[in-house]
């Protein structure tokens, strides 16, 4: 049996918002150590990976591993019906065909229970090896969101170049070109670790979608390495993360 309680529905709302633009159906795997989810988008260009350790929850119990096939649009509708301040408890039996979501208001005067039908999903899981990234950049997540938004006005393709001097985002299109450079700051809000310089091209549409996770974390980590997908990571309250992987564009 699974029983997992979050103190605030707001966190679940943010997580669902960060997932639902990339994937519509996905399996949430629950075990005694927490919850994991991994799915590629329909066009196999990006992958999202969610991890919530038990520390994310006020209460967590999972006696036996259980996989919950979720329709994220349906889950989104349910969490929208709750107030962000409500607590939410997710419950499922060992061989569940439905997920129970119980919301309780702050003063416990209002409770709302929803049953969500679960799906049997046959999804590929990919083994992502530990990667020694050539460049790791950390910056305010709002800054990254702003850059991705601004770049997408100019081109579908965003070129990211990273050197010891800084990280540069470039887009070139019919309108003209855009270049935004960020250097490391002494106060530490932008850090840039470079083992070797790198330049790669990515689909701006996907980068923009990743920034739906901005409300989850003040900071974002961007990791690049030759010949491997880009990693964009948002941490979740010290006990979890949402990671997006994006295959680079390559010259024919």
């Amino acid at each position: 049996m699974l029983e997992a309680r979050l103190g605030e529905t707001q966190l679940l709302k943010k997580i669902v918002d960060a997932l639902k633009e990339i994937i519509s159906l996905s399996t949430l795997d629950c075990s005694e150590t927490g919850m994991q989810l991994q799915s590629m988008d329909n066009s196999h260009v990006s992958l999202v990976s969610l991890s919530l350790q038990t520390g994310c929850f006020e209460k967590y119990r999972c006696d036996r591993n259980v996989s919950l096939g979720l329709d994220l649009k349906s889950l989104s509708k349910v969490v929208k019906s709750a107030s962000g301040d409500d607590s939410v408890t997710l419950s499922a039996a060992d061989k569940a065909d439905k997920l129970l979501l119980s919301f309780e208001s702050d003063n416990k005067s209002r409770t709302a229970d929803y049953e969500l039908k679960l799906l049997n999903l046959d999804q590929d899981h990919l083994g992502i090896p530990d990667t020694n990234y050539a460049c790791t950049v950390q910056m305010p997540s709002s800054e990254f969101a702003r850059i991705c938004r601004d770049m997408s006005m100019f081109s579908e393709t965003v070129v990211i170049s990273c050197t010891k001097q800084g990280i540069k985002f470039s887009a070139n299109g019919d309108l003209g070109s855009a270049n935004i450079k960020l250097a490391e700051t002494s106060k530490g809000d932008i850090t840039i670790d470079v083992e070797e310089p790198i330049t790669q091209s990515f689909a701006g549409r996907y980068l923009n979608t990743f920034t739906r996770a901005t409300p989850l974390s003040d900071r974002v980590k961007i990791c690049l390495a030759p010949e491997v997908p880009l990693l964009v990571e948002y941490s979740i309250e010290d006990y979890g993360y949402i990671r997006y992987y994006l295959a680079p564009k390559v010259d024919d």
Binding site: V45, D124, H125, L126, I128, V228, A247, K249, D251, D252
Partner: peptide
Amino acid sequence: EPLQNDLAEYYDKL
């Protein structure tokens, strides 16, 4: 325009 790679080509299916 550069081509878009398939992400699954980078990782092994489990």
